[in-house]
Amino acid sequence: MRHIISVLLENESGALARLVGLFAQRGYNIDSLTVAPTEDATLSRLTLVTHGNDQVIEQITKQLHKLIEVVKLTDLSESAHIERELMLVKVKAVGEQRDEIKRCADIFRGQIVDVSATTYTVQLVGTSDKLDAFIQALTGTPILEVVRSGVSGISRGDKTLTM
């Protein structure tokens, strides 16, 4: 099953390498990973998407906890949460396709953020499923480049992951 694990990490050199190394070392999957400092510059917030059975996920959270620089973590997918991913897609856009791509982007509430004589770059934000669906919807349009940020997530309601 797919899990979204959110981690508060000491913002120290080597901390990220240690966390990523743990996944490689123990054969766990990383489907996506995003990381950036928080409003408290001493802390980084990291969102990690992984998959595995319950036993594997339990080991992942326990092993993450063991890392000295991991301050706190939560499995967002265990309760109500919001997840978002940002995607930039550069597509070939010539002739009639220019309108078609624009319409498709509108339907997905995407924005065209860069234009050239032969290309559009579309920015889209949403769940990973939505981004997948947009790519599917672009049938017939040559895709030149896709960049995805990986998932960021946060709990719904009063629940927070802070110090």
Binding site: G14, A17, R18, G21, Q25, I68
Partner: peptide, 14 residues
């Protein structure tokens, strides 16, 4: 050495 020892230490620092 931090990189080499990372998987075989409880912790490492410089």
């Amino acid at each position: 050495m931090l990189g080499i020892s990372r998987p075989i230490v409880k912790h490492n620092m410089s």
